[in-house]
């Protein structure tokens, strides 16, 4: 059983929790590849997907995971709700919970929103991304994808390339991969690498070629232009020429590496089409694995016995 009541971040999970989630995800991956992809485990559970920020993959993935588990789902997007009339987060959630909802899956632009909510309302909270803080299910599905591709995560070298400063995926990935025994490095322009990140035990590399020669897996992050209020590098073209990955670059390396991307891809900036669609890429496997991992998270959280 999981040691936590909510999934707020990878920081709060221990290694056994992560191992249990990945092991359960294996069986769900098996389920979603059968002719009948549905199981009735959560048939008496209602889950609300609260999205205060745009999302395609994560929202659809959660919704599909909920439906595959036979849960009833409610969808909420902030732009078409009373939030735009000035309602507070707690009021919004408490109103939804009085309609007898058992679980809340929430994405919010503010870091710590999921943690705050878990202290204020009586429901199971799953963090689907809070600001530039954590995105736990993405880290779990990345670890799951590495495990399925390379057999295990322990001892592997993973480099996270790009906009580390604005990335919740980077932070959750660092926690998750380290807890599973992998070595992690971050790589990007110095302006996009948070200060003191080496205190988390990660290597910092500003030269892409050096980073790629070192690693087994490269996780290419998107440049989050929507979060960048100032200029962090002179131009996208310059960024792309220094930190973008194309097939010729990949072939010039002395070994084969696995390429991942959490999506959405800016084709031609951090990664070119011939890499994204190439043989080393497991980007679409990540999306498939995402449904299985989210099913595992929802199943295990809902299955905790009441205290």
């Amino acid at each position: 059983m999981l040691s936590v009541k909510h999934l707020l971040g990878i920081k709060y999970l221990n290694r056994e929790d992560i191992a249990l989630i990945l092991q359960t995800a294996d069986t769900f991956l098996d389920v979603i590849n059968r002719p009948i992809k549905k199981v009735p485990s959560l048939r008496d559970i209602t889950i609300v997907n609260l999205f205060f920020e745009n999302s395609t993959r994560t929202r659809l993935s959660f919704e599909l995971a909920e439906k595959r588990l036979s849960a009833d789902t409610l969808n909420f997007t902030a732009s078409s709700s009373s939030v735009s009339k000035g309602e507070t987060l707690i009021d919004t959630v408490n109103n939804i919970l009085s309609m007898k909802v058992d679980m809340v899956v929430m994405r919010h632009p503010q870091a710590g929103a999921a943690h705050f909510l878990s202290e204020q309302v009586d429901s199971i909270i799953v963090n689907a991304g809070d600001g530039a803080h954590e995105h736990p299910t993405q880290a779990l599905l990345d670890a799951f994808s590495i495990k399925r591709k390379l057999g295990s995560v322990e001892g592997k070298k993973v480099v996270i390339v790009g906009d580390i400063l604005h990335s919740r995926v980077a932070l959750s990935n660092i926690f998750c991969l380290q807890k599973l025994g992998a070595e992690v490095a971050v790589c990007g322009p110095p302006t996009l690498i948070p200060r003191h990140i080496e205190s988390l035990g990660v290597r910092v590399e500003t030269n892409l070629r050096k980073a790629l020669e070192w690693c087994d897996v490269a996780n290419m992050l998107r440049i989050q232009l929507e979060r960048q209020d100032i200029k962090y590098f002179p131009s996208l073209r310059e960024y792309s020429s220094l930190y973008g990955l194309n097939a010729a670059y990949l072939e010039s390396l002395s070994k084969e590496i696995v390429i991942m991307h959490p999506g959405p891809i800016n084709r031609g900036i951090e990664i070119s089409s011939d890499v994204a669609d190439g043989p080393h890429s497991i980007i679409l496997d990540q999306v498939e694995n995402g449904v299985a991992v989210r099913m595992a998270v929802l199943y295990l959280l809902a299955g905790r016995q009441p205290e």
């Binding site: 059983m1 199981v39 299955g303 016995q305 009441p306």
Partner: peptide, 12 residues
Amino acid sequence: TFFRDDFRRKAL
């Protein structure tokens, strides 16, 4: 396991 009716009564 996913089809059992004692889900949430014990860890499955």
